[in-house]
């Protein structure tokens, strides 16, 4: 096995890890929060007044 073959395996492995990380986080987020909250973004909200960051409210950890 040469260096480039090792790099290829590393690339496959890293790709799988990143994909898995995104999938797990996606599922975890979807389970933790209500769909109503997750899809509450509205177009054209230029002012910050109503837009609350749940991370500052004891939300997602």
């Amino acid at each position: 096995m040469n260096n480039f073959q090792l790099l290829e395996y590393a690339a496959w492995g890293l790709s799988a890890l990143l994909g898995l990380w995104m999938l797990i986080d996606l599922i975890r987020t979807d389970r933790t929060y209500s769909e109503e909250l997750l899809t509450s973004s509205q177009e054209g909200e230029i002012e910050d007044a109503l837009v609350i960051d749940p991370t500052h409210q004891g939300g997602h950890r």
């Binding site: 933790t32 929060y33 209500s34 109503e36 909250l37 997750l38 509450s40 973004s41 509205q42 909200e45 910050d48 109503l50 837009v51 609350i52 960051d53 749940p54 409210q57 004891g58 939300g59 997602h60 950890r61």
Partner: peptide, 17 residues
């Protein structure tokens, strides 16, 4: 404690940074 539902009027928007 995790927050699972929207408090009245609370919204999540994209971050303006």
């Amino acid at each position: 404690m995790t927050q699972t539902t929207a408090i009245h009027g609370e919204k999540i928007s994209l971050l303006r940074v």
